[in-house]
Write a protein that binds this DNA or RNA. Structure first.
Length: 435
RNA sequence: UGGGGUGUAGGUCAACUGGCAGACCGCCUGACUGUUAAUCAGGAAGUUGCAGGUUCGAAUCCUGCCGCCCCAGCCA
């Protein structure tokens, strides 16, 4: 490929009206009317219509145009001009066309309906479509908002390990051999390491991929997903929920503020997002059970909320809600016993509206050495593996709380996606390891 | 893992009670100087998921297997 002057981004067309520029990108569409042709190209910054007139270009340029196919990579030279008939308001009157990368005639993705399986098989190409680009940009904005939120509040980012010994959640683990140390497991959470870091730095968060080998095939589960887990020294469960509602509201507001065009591309009802403001309603677990029973659910005290129960409960609200203080048996061993009702623990789930379900699980952590040890025994967990975790209660134990927010579930909710699989570039699910 | 559904052209789907394998989109060829998922004319394109069975005859009925989707459980 030849070296030429720096190319112009389509996003900058407005500032270059009347000037001659070079543009590099991929052909998304070709329309021809005999002696005039329209080529739509995409360069990552935007899409633009290019106009070629047969009588105004060299014969070989017109010839090359005839060879254009969907997703050909091209370099175009021409003058930017304003034109109401062009989709972006500007178009390029082309004088030269160079094909940088050809594309055969069998490009599989059409601007029409496709089945999910087909699209996921072609995920590497599907990403080029406008809807997928919009989702990627919203996800990016949310990730940046997350980092900004914690940075502004003086949290320290701590990267926790992905390869771990058996520790953390109960459900399925991915295993791999680890030198002479036996089996290592892909991390399901960074929380326990986060607790250790909180005693060093006060306010911390970790943000990374987590792995669950659960054999679940639902619209709300991935085998590999990204989780944000803050942990704050001296926060109790109430402080924890205040942090959560501020955090979620900040993320949503940021997406609405800076990614409105993308949300419109996704046909998201933005008014529903604009209602997301703190405080979020708190519903005590025991009250939730009574409400659900009154609505006809078969739930009894002690059960975890099923998906149907969540939907039933959330139907009364148009903001996220907190369901607080679940029975001990339904929750993880590290959650702090509720002094007001020892059958329960100081915890909360945050349920998103519109049926998106649980986006956060959070709790105050058990800071009493003996009670924590007793819970480890009750759950029949290997005490040896938790020696270092118990040390956090042995050496200067402290009230602390934290939570985990599922990134893909949040992105799905903000974008209004029907399934989690579109919320990440290359989803990993039970039956999908490639591309 | 359990329950329900589904599998036909590159894609999305039709095909009545078992009776000639179809449509649209895309692609190819041609026409067209302002198209917006252009339009018009023509064309190519199939091991009906796989294996077996019933039948004069199977995309269609039966058995087994496989893939995928939805729901549930688990969770974020």
């Amino acid at each position: 490929m030849s070296k030429k002057s720096p190319s112009t981004r389509i996003a900058d067309f407005g500032a270059r009206a009347g000037q001659s520029v070079d543009v590099q990108g991929w052909v998304t569409h070709v329309r021809s009317s005999g002696k005039i042709a329209f080529v739509v190209i995409r360069d990552g910054s935007g899409t633009a219509q290019v106009v070629l007139v047969k009588t105004e270009v060299q014969p070989e340029v017109w010839e090359r145009f005839g060879g254009l196919t969907q997703e050909s990579c091209v370099r175009l030279t021409g003058v930017v001009r304003e034109d109401k008939r062009s989709p972006g308001g500007f178009e390029l009157a082309a004088s030269d066309l160079e094909i940088l990368g050809t594309s055969p005639q069998d490009y599989p993705i059409q601007p029409k309906e496709h089945g999910v399986d087909f699209l996921l098989d072609h995920r590497h190409l599907w990403l080029r479509s406008s809807r997928q680009r919009a989702i990627a940009r919203v996800r990016h904005e949310i990730e940046q908002a997350i980092r900004d939120f914690f940075y502004e509040r003086d949290f320290t980012l701590v990267d926790t390990p992905i390869l771990t010994a058996a520790i953390g959640e109960r459900s399925g683990l991915f295993a791999t051999e680890y030198f002479d140390e036996g089996t290592a497991y892909l991390a399901q959470t960074g929380q326990l390491y986060g607790e250790a870091a909180a005693a060093a730095l006060g306010k911390i968060y970790c943000f990374g991929p987590t792995f669950r080998a659960e054999k679940s095939k639902t619209r709300r589960h991935l085998s590999e997903f990204w989780m944000i887990e803050p942990e704050v020294a001296f926060n109790d469960s109430e402080d924890n929920m205040r942090l959560q509602e501020d955090f979620v509201s900040y993320i949503v507001a940021r997406a609405v503020e800076r990614r409105r065009p993308e949300l419109e591309e996704l046909e998201r009802d933005i008014s529903k997002l604009e209602r997301i403001k703190p405080p979020f309603p708190r519903v005590d677990y025991s009250d939730a059970v009574k409400t659900l029973q009154a609505k006809g659910s078969s739930i009894t005290w002690g059960d975890d909320l099923g998906a149907e129960d969540e939907t039933l409960l959330v139907a009364d609200y148009d903001t996220p809600i907190f369901v607080c203080n679940y029975p001990k048996e339904a929750k993880a061993f590290y959650m702090k016993e509720n002094p007001a009702d020892p059958r329960t623990v100081l915890c909360n789930d945050c349920l998103a509206p519109e049926g998106y379900g649980e986006i956060i699980g959070g709790s105050q952590r058990e800071d009493d050495y003996d009670k924590l040890l007793a819970r480890i025994h009750e759950e029949k967990l290997p005490v040896d593996a938790y020696g270092w975790y118990l040390d956090l209660r042995k050496y200067g134990t402290f009230v602390h709380s934290g939570f985990g927010l599922g990134l893909e579930r949040t992105v799905s909710w903000v974008c209004g996606l029907p399934h989690l699989r579109e919320a990440i570039a290359f989803p990993r699910m039970m039956n999908r390891l490639r591309p």
